[in-house]
């Protein structure tokens, strides 16, 4: 599936990166905790979040993420969106809740990122 399929199923609005909607996507993560995103994401993936501060963009930059989806109708300020565009991120916003957005994307074939080695009780 591509980001364009996500736009369709989420009835999302494309805020930035409209020229990259044909980018293929396979996995996603959903969190408002950037600490956890930094710790648990090891791949170029999609981030679904309700947090709209500049650190969401910085976190995405450090991890080379492909696409950001803001849920609950949230839209970051223009300067935040501009810095997202600078790094080539596709940015979407949907009026859906995180739960509904994730459910629909899972149904469409997107899967959660695997938890990297080194975390969790079984590794201790």
């Amino acid at each position: 599936m591509t980001i364009e399929d996500m736009v369709r199923v989420l009835s999302a609005r494309v805020l930035r990166g409209g020229d990259k909607l044909d980018t293929p996507v396979y996995t996603a993560c959903c969190s408002d905790l950037m600490s956890d995103v930094l710790a648990f994401v090891d791949e170029k993936t999609v981030l679904i979040t309700g947090l709209t501060n500049p650190h969401v963009i910085r976190t995405s930059e450090m991890l080379d993420l492909k696409c950001l989806v803001f849920v609950r109708g949230k839209v970051p300020t223009d300067d935040i969106l501009d810095s997202a565009e600078e790094q080539g991120l596709v940015v979407l916003t949907t009026k859906m809740t995180a739960f509904s957005a994730c459910g629909l994307l899972y149904d469409l074939g997107l899967r959660g990122v695997p938890v990297p080695l080194g975390w969790g009780a079984e590794d201790k």
Binding site: D32, L33, M34, S35, V37, A39, L51, H55, V56, W119
Partner: peptide, 15 residues
């Protein structure tokens, strides 16, 4: 409030 303070910073650096 900015999305930090989950107590993952130092362990994540080490990892």
């Amino acid at each position: 409030s900015l999305g930090f303070g989950a107590g993952m910073g130092l362990p994540n650096m080490k990892r």
